[in-house]
Amino acid sequence: MRIGTARSSYRHDEALFDSRTQYAWLAILGVALLGFPFVADEYWLYLACLVAINIASATGLNILTGYTGLVSLGQAAFMGIGAYTVAAFEQKFGTPVLLNLLAGGFVAMLGGLVVGLPSLRVKGLYLAISTIAASVVLHFVFANWHSVTGGHSGITVAPAEILGISFDTSFRLYWLFVPITIMMVIGAANLFRTRIGRAFIAIRDRDISAEVLGIPLLRYKLLSFGLSSFYAGVAGGMWAYFFRVVTPESFPLLMSIFFLAAIIVGGMGTILGAILGAIFMTMVPEALKLIVGWLPLSTDATLILSPVRTIVFGALIVGFLVFEPLGLQEIWRRIRRFFHLWPFRA
């Protein structure tokens, strides 16, 4: 706890942010997010949208894996359900964007509830394998349910349209995706101040003890799967509006590993961890490209440095895991702690 933030009421104790400094920084972040689209070019706006989608999905996986302790490698497949639902709703019914996204979330949630059933019996790696199996089944459904998914060719999605405004550029999509992601992140942060969220944490820490305390494991594990899949479904829906083509190959197993890596690198079981992890995993490959681009090298060097970049990215992930197992959020926390007393204590 930082100096000068003695909690004198339960309300204060429950608050998400407890100091004026934090509110000031939040305001700065808000202004930065509002101003960003007006100073950034299409490339940076594209990356911002991609980061927003990845944060939404990583936050969902964090609810399941980071907070409830259930390892899942099915996040990409749940995103696929959301993306296909949005694509099909958009193509067949032309329903409003926000309704489509919600539908994507709910259909993915149903998928998550089914896939989550084995979680009562199996844990850890066994559960991970069962979620991989579910991904394979879903991939088969995506590829072969021609009338809905369009088979291997997939579905082309029309641009999102709200009040006659077509969201066909990264600039416009930014104003759709970033608020949705912020709402989802705030929702997740608040979840862990409720009975449900605390039940998830209890299950993660020791599921037998949680049951003894009166937490029905099946209900809460399924709820965690459902919520996580809902997040993935909405993220998948945003993905569909972003890339505008959904095929069975759009959501490979590697993508699930990407999200798992994101929450591990960011810091499992913290809201900030999922955010930092998603930013890290999305931006570091691009940042490395930028660094290579700044070097006064020929295009031949770009070719030579491409595999080197991949190695550096891998080494960075391993480095974080070795030197900071609690993830980027712990580094962030240490930096914050340093500045709490700065400059009075170096």
């Binding site: 299409e42 490339y43 594209y46 295009t299 770009t302």
Partner: peptide, 23 residues
Amino acid sequence: YVPEDSAYAVDQSVAAFKKITSQ
């Protein structure tokens, strides 16, 4: 000629496209 590595991943290919075409 302005190339960017795409790593054969759609999101990175599109990122490369956006970067190259915006600059």
